[in-house]
Design a protein around this nucleic acid. Structure first.
Lengths: 161, 161
DNA sequence: TTCTTATGGTTGCACCTACAACGATGTGTC
DNA sequence: GACACATCGTTGTAGGTGCAACCATAAGAA
């Protein structure tokens, strides 16, 4: 048992501010999307991820990795999106345990409609409040944190150094 | 209607990484505290905030501002903490609409027991993965974001510049 | 083949959170 | 004092999320 290394003043301030952002930012992202497009941020992110995949189709497990969701969570969200006609599921022919999710035309239209407002919101809340140097710093910091949070690099593999 | 300013490559990478951290970090904080102390991060934060207040007591509204919670959310969390004997509520004598929440002895003991593991986890997940310069950068970045997320500075007033 | 084990995905259950509506008290105006 | 209005906190209700248990299919061993 080693002694606890308590936070010094600078560390404490940095962490308290970070925790505050962690608490506030997700809600700010959700509320704009819910208001303007009737989507949670997670739903938007899943649809956007699909929209950039080949054939706008992915294995459910692959989409879960991209969006960093657990399978149960994604499964239920997909059920909702399917009811809304934005995606469809189909059993995979090669591996009949697996399923492919595809964006429907309506789903594609939804992403196209929602994207500008969402991007504008990300700028307003985050990017436009930082200098270009800070944006780069944030990118490096987040990358460092993902090393611990997502050690296998499964999530957002395309964005890792 | 102005044209959408889409994200350039650096901005997109920074944002995707940040969104990934936003998705993963809260769960990592919760799971250590739930495992070791049977508290969510939010519950821990509320108890810790109380533990640093004069008399270990705060108005419910003041605690909501400190923890950045809505009143309904905090009210229900306090109900749970009260059932566990960690806090108690008492109607405020000066303003009988209001109530004061106080940490009980058991609540204080819980904070004392939980703090070392939590601090260690914050170091493992965040602070120890960054250079001292990056910790300072993160502090400044979070401060800048709170300017938009919490314009009135009600939250974490003590940590703002 | 048959048995065992691993993987893909869904569902039961419990809990947490948001939004809106509500009861109760305080403040200002006439 | 009596009214309108704002504030403090709680609760009804609906929906999201995690964990564990579950079914179905696949892969490997005997």
């Amino acid at each position: 048992m080693s002694e606890t290394r308590w936070l010094d003043e600078d560390e404490q301030r940095a962490w308290l501010r970070t925790a505050a952002v962690l608490e506030l930012l997700p809600g700010a992202l959700d509320s704009q999307l819910l208001r303007d497009s009737d989507l949670t941020h997670f739903e938007y992110f899943a649809l956007a991820s699909l929209s950039e995949a080949p054939e706008r189709t992915l294995r459910i497990t692959a989409l879960a990795a991209l969006t960093n969701a657990t399978l149960p969570r994604l499964s239920r969200v997909l059920t909702g999106l399917e009811k809304s006609g934005l995606v469809k599921r189909a059993t995979c022919s090669e591996d009949r345990r697996a399923k492919n999710v595809s964006l429907t035309e309506a789903g594609w239209a939804k992403v196209v409609q929602a994207a500008p407002g969402h991007v504008e919101n990300v700028r307003r809340l985050v990017l436009d409040r930082l200098t270009p140097e800070q944006v780069q710093q944030l990118s490096d910091i987040a990358e460092a944190l993902l090393g611990e949070l997502d050690p296998e690099g499964k999530v957002f593999a395309s964005t890792r150094s």
